[in-house]
């Protein structure tokens, strides 16, 4: 993977987000490159979700320069939205619609044609091995499957970048593994994956990770480089060493 300005898909300089006196994001600086799996780590309340929402256009930054997919978040949020997929922390498909209907709805509002929707629905159901569940109401489907579906829905319009906010929370180890296989597959097709997680074993799967503490990025590098730098055997150790210094963390 080349890290040049040419294949840079996310560009963040001096991002600050304040809620009153509370500084959720304190002068963040980072770049993410095409096809990369970028892990965004931090304890609860460190400011990960806020930063991710700003990148997705769900929240406005207080200040800073931010470009996503080559577009400016202040002025070109519509273009950004066409190029990104997002899977929120909370499960956010419609529980009272069927698998197929969810695909149809999201495909439709992303402006896909009826045939595109049909083809992509079929493809996705096949790759998820859920063809027989197409007409099941989502409420009746186990959580792990739902998460995989939500990921597929976030990818329905073939975005350049996909944002995953703690996608594997509460999911069993086997499904987590399958989920990461899906992430790898997406990355191999050139999709940039921006993922937040609490699981340190998952952090090892990322190409690069950043660790946030109290709204600041304390470390940013490949897992191997970080372990070498902090002289730690696992990412767990690296994380705990950094996060322990935080004031807001660990109690929330």
């Amino acid at each position: 993977m080349e890290s040049t300005a040419n294949n840079r898909v996310i560009h963040v300089r001096e991002l600050v987000k304040k809620f009153g006196d509370f500084v959720a994001n304190d002068h963040l600086n980072f770049d993410v490159y095409a096809g990369e799996i970028f892990g965004f780590l931090g304890a609860n309340g460190a400011g990960k979700t806020t930063a991710m929402k700003i990148l997705c256009g769900l929240q406005r930054p207080s200040s800073g320069t931010i470009e996503v997919a080559g577009f400016d978040v202040y002025k070109q949020s519509d273009q950004i939205k066409k190029n990104i997929g997002y899977m929120s922390q909370r499960f956010s498909l419609y529980e009272d619609l069927t698998v197929k209907e969810n695909f149809q709805f999201y495909g439709g509002i992303y402006g896909l044609s009826a045939t595109e929707i049909k083809d992509r629905t079929r493809q996705m159901l096949e790759s998820l091995q859920m063809t027989t569940s197409a007409d099941m109401i989502l409420r009746d489907i186990p959580l792990g499957w739902k998460q995989k579906l939500a990921f597929s829905v976030a990818m329905v319009h073939r975005p350049k970048i996909v944002f995953l906010d703690e996608p594997t929370g509460g999911v069993d180890p086997i499904t987590r593994r399958q989920f990461w296989e899906m992430i790898y597959e997406a990355a191999s097709k050139g999709v940039t994956v921006f993922v937040t997680t609490h699981y340190m074993d998952e952090a090892e799967y990322c190409n690069r990770i950043s660790i946030m503490v109290d709204g600041r990025i304390e470390a940013l590098d490949s897992p191997a480089a970080l372990k070498a730098k902090y002289n730690a055997a696992t990412m767990d150790e690296v994380f705990i060493r950094l996060a322990r210094a935080g004031v807001r963390s660990m109690n929330g």
Binding site: L58, Y86, S92, L93
Partner: peptide, 17 residues
């Protein structure tokens, strides 16, 4: 309440639509 609005808000859908 269910959080589905966030998923809609990240799409390029227009307010009037």
């Amino acid at each position: 309440e269910k959080g589905t609005i966030e998923q809609i808000n990240v799409t390029p859908i227009k307010k009037y639509q």
